[in-house]
Amino acid sequence: MVSGPSDIATAAPDPLALKILVAGGFGVGKTTLVGSVSEIRSLQTEERLTEAGRPVDDTTGVAAKRTTTVAMDFGRITISDALVLYLFGTPGQERFWFLWDELAQGAIGAVVLADTRRLADSFAAIDFFESRGLPFAVGVNCFEGADRYPPEAVRAALDLDPDIPVVLCDARVRSSAREALVAVVEHALRRSAAARSAMT
């Protein structure tokens, strides 16, 4: 038997990898959401920080003591043999934006989780995605004891553009978490279609 590259079990074309980010303030349900729709793991990245919290291009190696370990939530959803969707969730404070910059590169979009008791915690993430033009949807997590607001009230409070989807969700419930992800992808799709028709 002739043995060649076609004997390799993985001769099928490589699947395409896509990603969606899950952002929001402390304790807003990022880990819960990623865990509801995928097998969740914690990913360790180590970042070198300067005083200002920016990474330095440092060629001197690990000896640098300013290494910080940042853990983020990470999940895989196998859509088909040809398509894999990865989810990344990490805290939204501004000092980790260098990390978000890398994560946002090439992402389909983001879910920004918001808690109506402290909406301001989601401002930073919203600003970040708006400024980078990355499609995002806001998922309003319905915590017990929090007043329920209609999505339009949340939209007004967050000063969102009319095309940004705002969905009420419970990150603990798989179908609800899934709908928040679907809202982002649908939004990205509408954007892409609009951009295409604007070109013709």
């Binding site: 088909s80 990205a188 799709l189």
Partner: peptide
Amino acid sequence: LREVIDGL
């Protein structure tokens, strides 16, 4: 993107 939506 449509495939992702259907898959989800």
